[in-house]
Amino acid sequence: MTSKKFLFVSTRAPWQQGHAAACADALMTHAVFEQETWLFLTGDGVLQLLDKQDGSAIGQKTMAKLFPALEVYGVREVLVDMESLESRGLVEADLMMKVTIAGKDRMKALIHECDQVLVF
């Protein structure tokens, strides 16, 4: 199978109408089909990575548990927008896993470099 570069940009909080979950599903499917994939969380999207999320409190699956598995699926890199973290009073230690904290310049470079960009 041929391979292309796909960037997924996720901009919404974890429980908002399933957008975050749909983004994760699409991302993982592309990775499973051996495509080069990146995930960039920006805006409220950075909240998806907050540690201590517990979906069971509202009778839901904890979607965040997927994130540590992304590397296993072959996702190249998970990036988090620095400004979005800062404007929400968050630091790297508040996140559930090690990710790349990056500026909008990196997002710009990825958007231009990837063959396809999907914003969720």
Binding site: T11, T42, G43, D44, S84, M107, K108, I111
Partner: peptide, 12 residues
């Protein structure tokens, strides 16, 4: 909106 700001920041 986040999206618009991200869009503006990433355009050349």
């Amino acid at each position: 909106s986040t999206s618009l700001l991200a869009c503006l920041a990433t355009m050349t």
